[in-house]
Design a protein around this nucleic acid. Sequence first.
DNA 1: ATGAAAGCGCTAACAA
DNA 2: TTGTTAGCGCTTTCAT
Lengths: 334, 334
Amino acid sequence: MEKITSLQVAERAGVSQSAVSRVFTPGASASAKTIAKVRKAAAELGYRPNMMARAMITGKSRIIGLVVAYLDNQFYPLALQLLSNALQEKGYHILVFSASNSQGASEEVMQELLDYQVDGIITASVGMTNDLTKRCAAAGIPVVMFNRGQEGAAISSVTSANKAGGRAVAEFLLSCGHTRLGHISGWSGSSTGRDRQAGFFETLTAKGIEPLILDGMFDRETAAAAAQTMMESANPPQAIFVGNDHMAFAVLDTLRQEMGLSVPDDVAIVGYDDVPLAAWPAYNLSTMRQPLNRMVEATVDTLLTRIEDPSTPTQRIEIHSPLIQRGTTKGPNI
Amino acid sequence: MEKITSLQVAERAGVSQSAVSRVFTPGASASAKTIAKVRKAAAELGYRPNMMARAMITGKSRIIGLVVAYLDNQFYPLALQLLSNALQEKGYHILVFSASNSQGASEEVMQELLDYQVDGIITASVGMTNDLTKRCAAAGIPVVMFNRGQEGAAISSVTSANKAGGRAVAEFLLSCGHTRLGHISGWSGSSTGRDRQAGFFETLTAKGIEPLILDGMFDRETAAAAAQTMMESANPPQAIFVGNDHMAFAVLDTLRQEMGLSVPDDVAIVGYDDVPLAAWPAYNLSTMRQPLNRMVEATVDTLLTRIEDPSTPTQRIEIHSPLIQRGTTKGPNI
DNA sequence: ATGAAAGCGCTAACAA
DNA sequence: TTGTTAGCGCTTTCAT
């Protein structure tokens, strides 16, 4: 299992080195008998083309940079796994870059991304600054933001229909007969959090209802504190829409264990994501589903399309999905 | 932000191309003023060395292949994140390979690992066959098995002290006064599962106690079914040691929600891993901690040491850790 | 369809 | 210490 080069294969097959290259280069031509000879020799020697050398010439590494921040929200590891599987099937692999969400760090990450000549970049759960994303575009590297959008930027993104989702939750809770509503929002620095909140808020205000809103920062502690604040207020909400499941679990924990409240009797809770844990009996959380499979498909599609043809326009894809009713809410007819 | 080569930097700095190379090659020498000139020109041009070209010559890609299977057990995403962070700090990055645990697939994965010229390999949650690991050794690529050991093989591994852990659990449950004990083991194909079981079992039999043992396969469904079987048996256990937290959550769900049993009053439960979810109030699971941070440190250390000096012997590292008592057990003095 | 030859961008001998 | 030279293993003209 030492290093076998195309030259050695060529010698054994009795052809030129370039013939070997052509046999292993998709879209190159060689006669049937050359192909046969080369494949035979290659198999005997255990030859495989060297990706690095190939990458250096073609400029294509078949590596996708994935920039992630925190993996404690179950949603992202799952996404990572599905993205990796999907890309692996297409002959790509994921190179992981951790971004600690600090300014200087993401600058450094960008540089490293470029160093490795990644063919494309997926950012998940990370607020890349406009500056950085622009530099990617300048460097000609396609970028897809997973589960984040960005206002004006000409960058592809794949999200669920967050605003529509927020609206759906509002309508659902209204239909349950609740009129005093709360929202523990996702980090307001993220489009995801903002959109969910906006949809929720505008639907409610249109009905003359002003929900109580606190920022949960996508963080357990913050969300739990917010829930406590809300429930201890003079006029506590009858239902709380929590910006994602990860926070909703913390809210449920606090409500039930710390405050001795009963869900959904004392207060109804709706989350967002529908991670597997939401379906486990311990939480049994009503939540807006984020269709992970379809989001991953769309991400991979968009990215690979732009890699193969850079002239393809960027696109912002929104995927609609249902509200899953479980045990933390009482449906309208119950 | 177009492609800047060392040659362009050299021209601008008024030095030779190799001078530029030396300035950017750790451990090469250049005069102070050359360094200054080159760094200045490089900064102005935004130059960074091309990893691919460098990798081709040095044979070092600064890429670590991480082979993983399923990311639904919270333990692994966390490990992935910490490994990635730690390696990134040392100038390495993780290239993800999904292994579906099937035979042919891991063969293919190995090939791809070699294609990318990874400097080292970490396998997590994956049973690489002896054959594959041997081929890595043959190819001279250091491998560290994370959270898995392997009997005879000369392969580095980092695990917690699983056998000791199993013993500790047995002793603890004994000290609580339980005499009828059950174990829902991890997949018996994994050293981790086997060792935990062995420690638990041998401690008990030494005391003349024969625990009831069922294989949980590291799977929620299987574990839940096993728990149900045990509790419905003629002589149900007073305490169950579950092979990891991921299964323990399923067991708790079944016990409490499906069977209406109370934990720890009707039956005590101990898990293994101490993932964050174990500490959340909804589960509040007593469990053997796996010291993730130290395991990650040890893994990175071992791997990088062997990458830098391949003559370093392989080592199997076991890290001891405490049993964390929470709400699913009743301590001996209560 | 095939072989010869020219590099991709870099590091590592080799001289000087 | 520095510049010159020779490749790393491959893809890709360019002739044939």
